[in-house]
Design a protein around this nucleic acid. Structure first.
Lengths: 201, 201
DNA sequence: GCGCACTGACTAAGCGCTTGCTTACCTTGC
DNA sequence: GCAAGGTAAGCAAGCGCTTAGTCAGTGCGC
């Protein structure tokens, strides 16, 4: 992969969607789903925030469910891509884990609203959509576990450490509040340190 | 507090509610809210699981919102009570934190469905109810921070450590699955260890 | 340059259904 | 006989989504 096309910092997630109403609606939906949750959000809320009439939404998306799926896919693929990219070119196994945890944490802080939607609304996905999203999610989990493995002897301990490390970042989706919370980079460094300490024998 | 009335292990949470339909409805609501989320759950779902007609619910609760409030109050008060009780009689500051984290984790594993409701449905509470619940929650957070404080120098670091320690347990509400996940006591010990390692200078 | 046919984005209105909750009535134990 | 606990039926409101139509922009024969 050419490093110039994959800067380790966040490229705008939404560039996967063509600029225009389709992207605008997705962003509006993230804001509303993040605030209220999927089921408490009406298509009228989303349309209003996107600056169009309730019916306008259906010109660009077949359903409210497709909006959630689109958002979830972009979000989970972005996490996976950044996780993979974060260790690129690093050979020291400890430094790889540190870089991974830092990036993973920063992503969840910067994109805390999107994070909330993709982490807490998986159960709101339709079965067919759920399968697709769960597959991406499994890849991310497997990658984190694989990076931790060389630093952890016991396989049972690896399982617990992998889920614990991810919990730190994922739970930020619940409490993170820009302005009140520390800056993403501060948390990224702090949480990466904490995970390194968890790994010390 | 008389130790015989506050065993450190889980007394049945639901004894706060008189046995009978009021308790049965609350338990049914926890199961349904936990599965689908508050807004995706209908009063018909709850009534059916509790074995009565849709209208029967309103003999015992004024509204669906009151059900959520009742559940949330019992849950948050139970967490706080067990947290406080867990350190009772322990003088060693390190052992107090270990006992606290172990208990906090076990509670969230054993009561993972209730945990999901009280942690993820706070935003679904009505404003007046929210105030009451948020106040209990703040007490729990303050207690955890106060117990960690003697072991952490820097105040900024305390803030991050307190939220990180709680995240480990709270996020279990998202992924814990009885049968597939380790036993509550195993996780309790493991997570208490992890927090102790996070605290090592 | 101009009229016309066509297209795609968008809206006002509203349909059919589900929702939380109410009403009127029934049953049972004391 | 009368609370207390329960139900069948249904109401008003709000939901996701559809329909029928407007309108600005575009391509094109002449």
């Amino acid at each position: 992969m050419d490093i110039s096309t994959t800067p380790n910092s966040t490229t705008d997630l939404w560039e996967l969607l063509p600029a225009g109403p389709r992207r605008g609606l997705a962003q509006a939906a993230v804001a509303e789903f993040g605030r209220r949750g999927f089921h408490a959000t009406t298509t009228r809320h989303i349309a209003e925030r996107a600056g169009m009439s309730p019916a306008g939404l259906y010109v660009h998306y077949a359903s409210k469910a497709e909006l959630l799926f689109t958002i979830s896919k972009i979000g989970h693929e972005s996490v996976l891509a950044e996780a993979l990219a974060s260790v690129d070119g690093i050979t020291d196994l400890t430094q790889r884990v540190r870089a991974l945890m830092r990036t993973f944490t920063i992503w969840h802080a910067v994109n805390h609203m999107l994070a909330r939607v993709i982490q807490y609304e998986m159960r709101s996905l339709e079965p067919a959509h759920y399968k697709v999203i769960a597959a991406i999610r499994r890849q991310t989990e497997a990658f984190v576990a694989a990076e931790l493995q060389p630093l952890v002897g016991d396989v049972e301990r690896l399982r617990i450490l992998a889920v614990a490390a991810m919990s730190l970042s994922i739970d930020m989706a619940r409490w993170y509040s820009p302005g009140k919370s520390p800056a993403p980079e501060v948390l990224g460094d702090a949480y990466a340190d904490l995970v390194m300490q968890m790994l010390r024998k």
